[in-house]
């Protein structure tokens, strides 16, 4: 994989096809954990970690077991199973060997277990164009998962900043709390739609 593909994947998945703000996946943690910057960062890092690991586990399963046996239709159910057990395993290992990291990731790890963004990354990494056309598809898939996680982290951090401003503002009473947060999220998403087409045209 050359440098150009690397940057292209990074640009497309972080900015253009951002999982949260453009594809609207993983909205639950995006709204739930974005109240404070350090929590948002913790969640983002945990998601990157899990996305890369999950792709590393599901990619071989798809290509070595499901495709030869013509069982592609079992993808979703198997991926959920594998991701959920993987997250549990990671949590146990972290608890044992890196208790400080486990404490800082805390509740976010189990939260990610059923995060649809992780499942989507695993599924999309199989069909992504740059992954499919790459000479080393497995490594490219991992890079793709990492980039998607990075996009999630970016969205979390940006929105945590937006929310800290909302916290001190005084919206009309009927908009207080969740409504104004949802409106703010939609505006941030709208801003991200402006990135559409950038990567394709940069690397033409």
């Amino acid at each position: 994989m050359d440098f150009k593909t690397f940057v292209f994947i990074l640009m497309t998945s972080v900015l253009v096809n951002n999982y949260v703000l453009t594809q609207f996946l993983g909205i639950c943690p995006f709204l739930g954990v974005s109240k404070k910057l350090n929590q948002a960062t913790g969640m983002g890092v945990a998601v990157i970690f899990v996305m890369v690991l999950a792709t590393a586990a599901t990619w071989p399963i798809q290509n070595l077991i499901l495709v030869p046996l013509k069982l592609d239709y079992l993808q979703t159910i198997l991926f959920i199973l594998v991701i959920a057990s993987l997250v549990q395993l990671v949590e146990m290992i972290l608890k044992k060997f890196l208790p400080s990291l486990h404490a800082s990731l805390g509740v976010y790890l189990p939260l990610i277990t059923t995060n649809c963004a992780v499942l989507a990354v695993c599924k999309n990494s199989l069909t992504n164009e740059s992954v499919a056309s790459s000479a080393a598809p497995f490594v490219t898939a991992l890079v793709y998962a990492f980039a998607c996680g990075l996009g999630f982290l970016l969205a979390m951090v940006l929105f945590a900043g937006v929310r800290s401003v909302i916290e001190h503002s005084k919206p009309p009473r009927c908009f207080e709390g969740v409504p104004i947060t949802l409106i703010a999220a939609s505006i941030v998403a709208l801003a991200f739609s402006g990135f559409g087409g950038i990567a394709e045209n940069l690397f033409k």
Binding site: I61, I65, L66, L69, L71, L74, I77, L78, L81, V82, S85, Q88, L89, M92, I93
Partner: peptide, 19 residues
Amino acid sequence: AVGVITAIGLACAVILVVA
């Protein structure tokens, strides 16, 4: 299909129990 799902689920379960 049933066999594959069961095998992978069992493998996950065994790994988790051992872990």
